[in-house]
């Protein structure tokens, strides 16, 4: 097993229910690519103006927003509260987070489809208790630099005050991220079972294949 760790500045987003419309607004979903979404991450909070996918104009930043402030601008570990990633199933939200350069999202809880999309793209999600989250958010907001060290192999996070937090993560998620697996390839190893199942269904529930 390769070891994987992430070290970097925290970006605190101090709210519940960060939805995927907020992460990447719909006007950028018209792209047919998986890249190029980074500049539009949290677009409506990050800029005072609006843009389109194909415009190259200089944007007017909202200086209040966390991503436009030092040291958060170059952060790579996003920390937020409950139900992160709720709403639309758009995988563009995960691509935007990754395109920006964020490697890890830590929150109290995540919405189901967002979790799945993150898993598929190897974006590491970590769930922590609200008390710990609040501590990280408060401390990061009041210091010039707040660096976490996330050690995936050992399920541990090292805080700047040398405190260690253990998190739990499913084996398959961990494998997926560490070994960068191709899920389709893995599923196709069961091709014969899928075919068998399908053949059985064609006999027992032929109407499912009516329009063949």
């Amino acid at each position: 097993m390769k070891s994987k760790s992430y070290n970097g500045q925290v970006i605190p987003i101090n709210r519940d229910n960060v939805d995927t419309d907020l992460i990447i607004p719909k006007q950028y979903l018209k792209s047919i690519k998986k890249s190029g979404f980074g500049p539009f991450l949290f677009d409506s909070l990050r800029y005072n103006d609006t843009a389109t996918l194909d415009s190259n104009d200089e944007r007017e930043e909202n200086s209040e927003f966390i991503l436009n402030r030092e040291p958060f601008r170059k952060g790579n570990i996003l920390v937020s509260k409950s139900n992160f990633g709720c709403g639309s199933s758009r995988e563009h939200a995960v691509w935007a987070i990754q395109n920006y350069g964020i490697d890890v999202v830590i929150a109290e809880s995540f919405a189901d489809i967002f979790s799945r999309n993150s898993f598929k793209n190897g974006l590491l999600l970590i769930t922590l208790e609200s008390q710990t989250i609040n501590e990280i958010i408060d401390s990061s907001l009041s210091s010039n630099s707040y660096i976490l060290d996330v050690n995936l192999a050992e399920d541990k996070i090292l805080l700047p005050n040398d405190k260690t937090i253990t998190f739990s993560i499913s084996r398959s998620y961990k494998d997926r991220i560490i070994n960068e697996l191709d899920d389709i390839e893995l599923t196709l190893r069961n091709k014969d079972q899928i075919k068998n199942y399908e053949n059985q269904m064609k006999l027992s529930k032929p109407w499912l294949f009516n329009n063949e």
């Binding site: 199933s89 995988e91 489809i113 799945r116 999309n117 598929k120 793209n121 389709i184 599923t187 196709l188």
Partner: peptide, 23 residues
């Protein structure tokens, strides 16, 4: 019936299946 992201769309196109954890 449930919504999926684009990677899963590709997965279903290619395999007609999804690996899911039961809710």
């Amino acid at each position: 019936s449930f919504g999926i992201g684009t990677s899963d769309v590709e997965h279903v196109l290619a395999t007609q299946c999804l690996n899911l954890t039961k809710e």
